[in-house]
Each structure stands twice: as C-alpha cells, then as structure tokens.
Amino acid sequence: MATGGRRGAAAAPLLVAVAALLLGAAGHLYPGEVCPGMDIRNNLTRLHELENCSVIEGHLQILLMFKTRPEDFRDLSFPKLIMITDYLLLFRVYGLESLKDLFPNLTVIRGSRLFFNYALVIFEMVHLKELGLYNLMNITRGSVRIEKNNELCYLATIDWSRILDSVEDNYIVLNKDDNEECGDICPGTAKGKTNCPATVINGQFVERCWTHSHCQKVCPTICKSHGCTAEGLCCHSECLGNCSQPDDPTKCVACRNFYLDGRCVETCPPPYYHFQDWRCVNFSFCQDLHHKCKNSRRQGCHQYVIHNNKCIPECPSGYTMNSSNLLCTPCLGPCPKVCHLLEGEKTIDSVTSAQELRGCTVINGSLIINIRGGNNLAAELEANLGLIEEISGYLKIRRSYALVSLSFFRKLRLIRGETLEIGNYSFYALDNQNLRQLWDWSKHNLTITQGKLFFHYNPKLCLSEIHKMEEVSGTKGRQERNDIALKTNGDQASCENELLKFSYIRTSFDKI
C-alpha cells in the first residue's frame, strides 16, 4: 500500500482533458527560462521544448504516446526543470519506465491550478516501474492521483506527508504495488545497510526511497516546507523545498512566496507586481503582455491589467481597466465587458449561442446573426445582446428569417469595421425574408467608422429604411451602385405612401 494514499474509496472516473512563447529569463536562482504550460502528445517531438525550461508557468501534460519505446527515452533528460506552477499529468506514455532521468531536479509542483483537485496525476502508464522524482520536495496545493499503472512499484516507500501538507485526498490505487509483488529495495538494503531515512506512518517504520538508488530526502521537522541542505541544516524561511546553503534567500532552489532578481522575498516591493503567484514583474512586463494579447485571437491570451499590486489576466467583477495605466478602477454604474472572439468572429444561430455573449459591452471581433427560429426570440436576444455598444469588426445579418427588427441591439452605437466582410463591408444584410426595420432612427444613433453597407434580398425592408441608415451611420456616399439592390429590397412591402385627393359631386333626387 502506498504510504499516505487512500484505498478502496469510491472515486469519480478520471477524465483526461485534452506555445513556446518565453516569458522571460528567471535569473540567477533558476538555471534556465520560464516556459508556458505545455500539452505534449502523440510523439516526442515537442518534448524537446523543455530543454531550457527551469519553470513551467502553467501545467505540463505528457500523454497518448503509443509508439514510443524505452530506448526512445534513454537520452532524454531535462535537468534544468525545477518547478511547475500548476500540475504534472502523465497518461498512456508507452515505453517510459521512470522519471528519474527525465526530470531529475523537479523540486516543486505548486498546484496553482489543479487537474480535478490533483497536482500530480500518473494514470495508465503501462510501462512505468517507478516514479523516480527523487528531488520532489513540495506539492504546495492539491493532491496526488496514481492509478492503474500495472508495473509501478516504489510507492509504499514514499512518505507523501513530507511532500504535501495533507495526504487525506491522495488516491493511489490499482498499481502493481497493490499486489505486494514489488519487493522494493532501498539503497544499501541488499548489503544489509540502512542508507535512507525511515519514518513512521500508520504504525509502520519504513525506509523512504524513490528507487533502488535514490533515497527520499527527509528534512528535520523544524525546517517545515522550506527544505534543508545535504547536511540537514534548514533553508531560509522564504525558500521552498530545498537550498544549497542554509538561511540564505539567494540560495533557495525555489521560493515559498515570490522570486525577485535572484532572491526569494515575502512580497513584491514597489515598483514590482505579483505575477502568477510566484514571481515579481515590473510595469513594462505587464504592459507588454497586455499589448501582445490586445489584437491576438490565441486562446488563453489575456490583456493583463494591474489590481491590488498584482498583474492579473482581467479586472475583477465591479472594476474596469483604465487604459492609460492598466489599473483596475471601480465602475460607475454597470461595468464594461470586452469579449474577445477566439477566431475573430462568432455566429449567433440560437439563443444558446447568444447567451455566451451575455453582459458583453464591447465585441472584439465580428458578429454573424443567422437565426431561423426560436421561442420568445426578441426578448431572449435583447437579454443577451442588448448591452453590446461596440463591435470592432463587422455585423452580418444573414438568412435570419425569424427577425423582424434589429432593435434587440438596443445599445449598439459603434461598428468600427477594423475587419470587413469580403474585404469591403462593415454591415452586411443578406436574404432576411421578414426583416422590416433596422432601428427606430428617431431614437437610435449608430456610427460606422469604416467599410460599406450591403443589402440584398431583404424583400420587406424598404429602401427608405436603408437610406436612413446611410445618413445616420455616416456611410452615405461610400456605397457603390450594386451594394444596395434596388429590386430585391422592399419588393414585397408597401414602401411608397402617396396622399390621394378626392373630389365629389353631391346629387339628390331633384338636383344634379
């Protein structure tokens, strides 16, 4: 039985969820670079991206490699990797027998973001014989899940209580170790020597080791999670996991709180800001991140802002960003909400898709409305799209047979046209069989910064309504002859009103 693990408890099935942008060198404390989270699957090609990484700022997932063999891993080693800020997950990587050479110096898994409450997941690794993470000293947050690894031993010899604050939620089941077939031998045991430290858990006094050649490092209890030197002297209180010299914040392997210019500090002093819960960055760093993602459509890219001495992905609820200094300031009234469309555009074809934009005031991208039916549609669209004030790209209304009016965009005031449909149009209306009105132009103002209007096959939309939009939106004169079809717009509506004058002759039985 794995020490510190839980057996036999019912657990939810383990679901495996399925960018080499360097964020800056980590400095003297770390020998390499800070790398983003990685999802490495199918083959070993991307694994080489770990070569210079000291910190993975995010998670590391290595999974679904069915053609790899043990010899493929023999020359692979990433000794610079010290810390993973989120979680480490391995799933069905064939041929991998140990992690001792792959990650010989991995010391800390912070667990800032977890995989279903777990910071370390080893699942269905069919050839893994031992973990071998002999320098792993601290899992700051989260638990361990090690399950269905039929060859995995050296679990009962690990004292997880020396690595985690609590072992109650560890789930370590259905491994070879369960069948008591392992016969784990710690260093020196074969020669009758006791080389590794022994600890007591559940009444068992057991030597602690990761492999037959690597003991588990056990520091004096007084050192807590700070770690200790090879001689057993406690590291500085700002260290986490390990250090090369005692009581020196510049000799830590990793930091308990924050890293700044080669030393570990309790908090980031001005003019620095907390970033990702582990390091200090200056304003320029946060500003660069903001600008890199301002026009990016890459998933996970955030326009970072500053709030409460932190550089964070977005302002919290009730705050909006001051564009001059990136500071989050309290909103006066309802907060603006910028919604970034991942692929640059979004099609609204149902109430469900409209709900995804609920509360958005600025759309960074283009909207395509293609709704053919739905219950209580006008009210639903207004509830979900009615706060949109600005669209950076274009607005396209296409084959939306259920629409009679666009009044559900009740606050839309600006279409920038930074991206144009077919390279020309910022407003595009095609084949809307029941569209009769755009907006009530006596109450609604709309500016279209650039781009043209396109109207074709809107049989109940009168040309007068379209011409009014040209005047109000500032697009009059931009359109070419064929942009607004004269014969297919309003051709099934009563669009022309003329005053009919009647004269009559009164007659009676005795007068003409």
Results as ranks from 00 to 15, higher is better:
His28Asn: 11
Leu29Thr: 14
Leu29Glu: 13
Leu29His: 12
Leu29Cys: 15
Leu29Asp: 00
Tyr30Ser: 09
Gly32Phe: 10
Glu33Thr: 06
Glu33Gln: 10
Gly37Gln: 12
Asp39Asn: 15
Asp39Thr: 08
Asn43Ser: 07
Leu44Ala: 12
Leu44Arg: 07
Leu47Val: 04
Leu50Thr: 02
Leu50Cys: 01
Leu50Ala: 06
Cys53Trp: 00
Cys53Val: 02
Ser54Asp: 02
Glu57Val: 09
His59Glu: 04
Phe66Leu: 15
Thr68Ser: 10
Arg69His: 09
Arg69Pro: 07
Pro70Thr: 09
Asp72Val: 07
Asp75His: 05
Leu76Val: 09
Ser77Lys: 06
Phe78Leu: 06
Phe78Pro: 00
Phe78Lys: 02
Pro79Gly: 05
Lys80Phe: 03
Ile82Tyr: 15
Ile82Arg: 12
Met83Leu: 12
Asp86Phe: 00
Leu88Glu: 00
Leu88Thr: 00
Leu89Gly: 01
Arg92His: 09
Arg92Phe: 06
Val93Arg: 00
Tyr94Lys: 06
Gly95Met: 03
Leu96Ala: 02
Leu96His: 01
Glu97Lys: 07
Leu99Lys: 01
Leu99His: 01
Lys100Phe: 13
Asn105Thr: 03
Asn105Gln: 09
Thr107Met: 06
Ile109Arg: 00
Gly111Asp: 00
Phe115Ala: 13
Phe115Pro: 02
Asn117Phe: 09
Tyr118Val: 01
Ala119Ser: 10
Val121Trp: 04
Val121Glu: 00
Phe123Ile: 15
Glu124Gln: 08
Met125Val: 03
Met125Arg: 00
His127Tyr: 03
His127Arg: 03
Leu128Val: 03
Lys129Asn: 06
Leu131Ile: 14
Tyr134Arg: 13
Leu136Ser: 01
Asn138Asp: 11
Asn138Gly: 10
Thr140His: 09
Arg141Tyr: 06
Gly142His: 01
Gly142Pro: 00
Ser143Tyr: 02
Val144Leu: 08
Arg145Phe: 06
Ile146Thr: 01
Asn150Thr: 08
Glu151Ile: 02
Cys153Val: 01
Cys153Leu: 02
Ala156His: 06
Ala156Trp: 05
Ala156Met: 09
Thr157Phe: 05
Ile158Asn: 05
Asp159Thr: 12
Arg162Leu: 11
Ile163Phe: 12
Leu164Val: 15
Asn170Trp: 03
Asn170Ile: 08
Asn170Val: 10
Tyr171Gly: 14
Ile172Glu: 06
Val173Glu: 12
Asn175Val: 02
Asn175Pro: 13
Asp177Leu: 10
Asp178Pro: 06
Asn179Tyr: 03
Asn179Val: 12
Asp184Tyr: 07
Asp184Arg: 14
Ile185Leu: 07
Cys186Asn: 02
Pro187Ala: 12
Gly188Thr: 05
Ala190Trp: 10
Lys191Thr: 15
Gly192Ser: 13
Asn195Pro: 08
Cys196Val: 13
Cys196Lys: 05
Thr199Pro: 08
Val200Leu: 03
Asn202Phe: 12
Asn202Pro: 09
Gly203His: 10
Gly203Lys: 09
Phe205Lys: 10
Arg208Val: 00
Cys209Phe: 02
Cys209Val: 03
His212Met: 02
His214Tyr: 13
Cys215Ser: 07
Gln216Cys: 09
Val218Cys: 11
Val218Pro: 09
Ile222Gln: 09
Cys223Val: 01
Lys224Ala: 09
Lys224Ser: 09
Lys224Phe: 06
Ser225Cys: 05
Cys228Asp: 06
Thr229Ser: 10
Ala230Lys: 15
Cys234Ile: 03
Cys234Glu: 02
Glu238Tyr: 04
Cys239Val: 01
Cys239Arg: 00
Cys243Asp: 02
Cys243Leu: 00
Ser244Met: 15
Asp247Tyr: 14
Asp248Leu: 04
Lys251Gly: 15
Ala254Ser: 05
Asn257Phe: 05
Asn257Asp: 03
Phe258Val: 06
Tyr259Pro: 01
Leu260Val: 10
Leu260His: 03
Gly262Tyr: 02
Glu266Lys: 15
Thr267Arg: 02
Pro269Val: 10
Pro271Cys: 07
Gln276Ser: 13
Trp278Lys: 00
Trp278Met: 01
Arg279Cys: 02
Arg279Thr: 03
Cys280Ala: 00
Val281Lys: 01
Cys286Ala: 11
Gln287Trp: 15
Gln287Lys: 07
Leu289Asp: 02
His290Gly: 07
Cys293Leu: 04
Asn295His: 13
Arg297Gly: 09
Arg298Phe: 05
Arg298Lys: 04
Gly300Trp: 06
Cys301Asp: 03
His302Lys: 01
Gln303Met: 13
Tyr304Val: 06
Tyr304Ile: 03
Tyr304Met: 05
Val305Ile: 04
Asn308Trp: 12
Asn308Arg: 11
Asn309Trp: 07
Asn309Thr: 09
Cys311Val: 14
Pro313Asp: 10
Cys315Glu: 03
Cys315Trp: 03
Tyr319Pro: 01
Thr320Glu: 08
Thr320Asn: 09
Leu326Cys: 04
Leu326Ser: 05
Leu327Asp: 15
Thr329Gly: 12
Thr329Tyr: 12
Thr329Cys: 04
Thr329His: 05
Pro330Glu: 10
Leu332Tyr: 05
Pro334Phe: 09
Cys335Gln: 04
Cys335Lys: 01
Cys335Glu: 04
Cys335Arg: 04
Pro336His: 12
